[in-house]
């Protein structure tokens, strides 16, 4: 245990690291829970793959090619794949932080017991995020492997795809955590899922360029974090990198920070009475 003096003299970064380090306990707990059910997690790999095959083969055969802003035409599958990668990262993170955390928070009361130990709210929040991140990265890596195998990686920029996808997953874990503390009943899941996740999935340039829509709607679509995640990851895998992608990244950094602050506050409100 760090002495009070040591804690006091350490900077903010040192203290933040302490929290992350202690948060590993929560990851260990989740590993323990899933130790006998790892196959449930592993089988989640199938989901984006089904989508890639289904949409790629089914629709790809009909749509054939999509024109990029730089004049190139790429196969529809290559167009959709990075978007499915970003979506997989989002879904993995959001599922863990919204559904699982909600049940632990409200029904299982898992955190009440943990809070009686030296673990604090920050440790719990960060721990759950780390775990969600690990889960999301499993799906991201498997998607990347498949994309490489199918020749859907069109640019050396793609080397950056993995870290960027992890950052996307972190952003959505923080967002999910910020949101879950607002939910009261199981029926409330409709709100984040139906009003946020689903529309984002459909309208963030996932399956078609958003230029198909009128400008006002485009502006609205560009406000979502998934839009920027897809734009950034698509830029990396297709080699379409420019100022826009720099802005995408800046936007995600801002969104991540905001989500983190809200998540911490809300968890505190929810757990401390």
């Amino acid at each position: 245990m760090a002495s009070p003096v040591a804690v006091a003299t350490q900077g903010g970064l040192g203290r933040a690291w302490d929290v992350v380090w202690r948060a590993r306990r929560l990851v260990e707990r989740n590993v323990l829970v899933y130790r006998h059910q790892w196959i449930v997690i592993l089988s989640g790999v199938a989901e984006p793959i089904f989508y890639l095959i289904g949409i790629g083969m089914g629709l790809g055969g009909l749509v054939r090619t999509v024109g990029l802003p730089d004049g190139r035409s790429i196969s529809y599958t290559a167009y959709v794949a990075p978007a499915l990668l970003a979506t997989a990262a989002m879904n993995g993170a959001v599922f863990e932080t919204i559904f699982n955390v909600f049940f632990k928070l409200n029904f299982r009361k898992t955190y009440d017991g943990i809070l009686a130990t030296p673990m604090g709210i920050s440790e719990i929040a960060i721990g759950e995020m780390l775990w969600a991140l690990m889960r999301a990265s499993l799906y991201a890596v498997s998607m990347l492997v498949l994309m490489t195998a199918l020749g859907l990686i069109l640019s050396p920029w793609a080397l950056l795809t993995l870290p960027v996808t992890l950052f996307v997953a972190a952003t959505f874990s923080a967002t999910g955590l910020a949101g879950t503390a607002f939910l009261r009943t199981v029926q409330d899941f409709d709100i984040p899922m139906g009003l946020i996740v689903m529309p984002m999935f459909l309208f963030s340039g996932t399956f078609f360029p958003i230029s198909a829509y009128p400008i006002p709607i485009q502006v609205f679509m560009q406000a979502t974090p998934l839009f920027h995640s897809i734009s950034l990851i698509r830029g990396l895998t297709t080699g379409l990198m420019g100022l826009e992608q720099v802005w995408d990244f800046a936007y995600l950094v801002g969104f991540f920070s905001l989500a983190m602050v809200i998540a911490m506050r809300r968890m505190e409100r929810k757990l401390i009475k």
Binding site: L59, L62, V63, V66, Y76, L202, F203, F207, F208, A212, Y213
Partner: peptide, 12 residues
């Protein structure tokens, strides 16, 4: 329908 139907529909 607005997304897939119209959006992907436009591509198709």
């Amino acid at each position: 329908l607005a997304a897939m139907g119209l959006g992907v529909g436009a591509l198709l």
